[in-house]
Amino acid sequence: MIHQYKLNGYSIVLDVCSGAVHAVDDLAYDIIGMYEGSTQDEIISAMLAKYADRTDVTGNEILECLADVEALREAGKLFSEDPYAGKAVDFQRKSNEVKALCLHVAHSCNLNCSYCFASQGKYKGERALMSFEVGKQALDFLVGHSGKRVNLEVDFFGGEPLLNWNVVKDLVAYAREIEGRHNKKFRFTLTTNGVLVDDEVIEFANREMHNVVMSIDGRPEVHDRFRVDYSGRGSYEQIIPKFLKFARARGERDYYVRGTYTHHNVDFTEDLFHLADLGFTRLSMEPVVCAPDDPCALTDEDLPVLFEQYEILAKEMLRREREGKPITFYHYMIDLEHGPCIYKRISGCGSGTEYLAVTPWGDLYPCHQFVGDDAYRMGNVWDGVTNTEMRDEFKHCNVYARPECADCWARLYCSGGCAANAYHAAGSITGTYEYGCKLFRKRMECAIMMQVAKYQETMKENAESMCPDV
């Protein structure tokens, strides 16, 4: 299976199952498009007719291009078959090892954002803070169920985790105390709304947090539309100076600013560029996921605008990079050469299997998006996963469990998408959230185009340095 598209002056052909990416000219693009459904004579006739005014497109040129296409097909880099369905079955039998936990250290928040999937941090339940004892047991559970895996991840999440900051620090200290003797390495992430960020938080996070996620939606009026405190005041003016200080202090360490866009700001690149111009260089912006009748829900009419926005973003990022002022965007951060193996691409985020969420009371859920839904409680940090049927359901929840994905060219980039989004949109974790699929495919086209652009620019620079007079 292949996928062909043109974007920003590039003609691109993806071979879905091998992962191969080809940048081609117009003739090759058309030949590849006809290759599987036409005879050689039909292709030659069609190309000679289409390019009759082109002196460089001759019968011999077309034959040569056809030979190149056939060579790539034989090398398994074009029109390759899908050999992974069987691997997916093997992978479903994988062990029950856990490698990542989302620790809900606070089911409480000092902001009152109306679009919050977590119901202002309470997850439809009572306010609560995780005790050190529950968190310690969660870390012991993770170490005890991680098998031979060395790298373990813990996200401090909420609500607002800084409302329980002392417990966060104590849990980090405990993890550092035990990781050596168990041959483990903990990588911590902190997600915060910024209200309680101060110098002490910055210093500790820079010492211990592998990544920091800072919640900002963009322009002041966009941010303050939803991200307000309990008296209704916007939080933009309060958090921006703190986050800027935090981001600068991170240096080379990972952080990213994460916003949410809604129907009210489909021109979301304006928000990203606003953040970039403030000085934030590592950005992410997620489409809101909510009930279709919610006023902030994205609509079908928004889609063409959003597609254009993603293209604008990709082109602007390339421009800024050429000017030596690069910014990153989470969804465009793909690594074609050293990217994930096929097992990762089949299994995705690992929710419900190798990735679990822990509530302040120690209950286990498939991920943070399922917390608060009693039907998805899987066990607790003392007894482990007791609902093994649910774990098995999530083990089978991969791209090959979704018939809708069978004909999708992006299936090995998204692994079938987010189980929680599918559950909320289609009523089943093995369903699909079609609106999200459309946005995802557009983002991948843009991300791959950027990789092609950078590759060609590098090749051109190398050629010029080898032959400076050319």
Partner: peptide
């Protein structure tokens, strides 16, 4: 100019043999 330029990518089929350690980030 070559009409088809293949970008360097990880071979997914080979990664079925060399991959699967589970040490990557989630």
């Amino acid at each position: 100019m070559k009409r088809i330029q293949t970008i360097e990518t990880r071979d997914l089929k080979k990664s079925a043999v060399t991959g699967g350690c589970g040490e990557c980030q989630t």
